[in-house]
Amino acid sequence: MYLTGEFPDAASTVVAIEALKARRLTADDLDVFSTEPVELPAGILDRPSRMSLAAVLGAATIGLGATGFLYFTQHHYRLITGGMPIFSFWATGVITYEMTMLGAIAATFLFMLHESGLIWPRHGAPAPAVEPGSIVLRVHCPDDQVTETGECLYRAGAARVEKLSAPSRDRKGAVLPILLGLLSLSSSLPAAGRKPLPWDKNRHLGQDLYREHCAVCHDIAKPHDPKSKKPGPSLHRLFQNEKLPLTGAKPSRDYVTVKIKFGGQIMPPFIKRMTDAEVNAVVDYIESTGRK
């Protein structure tokens, strides 16, 4: 499964890559897409290369091969030279030099195509469409870790996280990846009606904040249990229940919002720890869990 996260800058991309590496994803699973090369600090996403070695080997092979061929052609023709050497070392030297360089050029070019994956696309993976200026991190993760990985991307500061369509096995032409890119571009448009993902942005933020601030005192997954050691009442199906657990009043967003902001007898106020939007996200989250 391939996920993509769109990042506004290199710094947040680095945060995401480090977080994903902590989740045991390797550099092999990660790809950064951009319209201009992105400079990541050393050690973040290194791509070891054997291009220099290939250039040297290519140079040696073609250089020696060409010299051998010259030697062969010059001896092949039985010129009567009266005992003078037939193979001119110095005159051939220039050709040897040029052919050595040609070997280096050819090897560099072929290895560039190889290492970039242009001639053999990696896993036939789909490529995301990238808007100029933005950075897209593509993650190859196991199917059962999609949610966690997506959350990881959001937490690092991704503006948008999406699933990429299934890997293509077709490796025929160079045009194909471009078409794929265009397809994924069109699928990212709102009109295309993509499937809503389990981590719709606001809810994800709410869930994160809930885990950070609320979960220590309030259960949300199960109904209130008198034996629970948590000091606060369970918020399970809070908005779907007839009345609120402590006051017995009819549940309303306003009441819950005020309660979060200003706290109660035991509960601390959160007005200085969360913005209005964040409080709103938490309420959204509480509301959405009950709808399942």
């Binding site: 951009s34 090369p37 290895f111 560039m112 195509l113 990238v130 593509r138 160079a174 194909l176």
Partner: peptide
């Protein structure tokens, strides 16, 4: 364009080349 996607592998290889 040979199917250039703009991945960091491609950029790395291009710059090295």
């Amino acid at each position: 364009a040979l199917g250039w996607t703009g991945s960091d592998r491609e950029w790395h290889a291009l710059e090295r080349a």
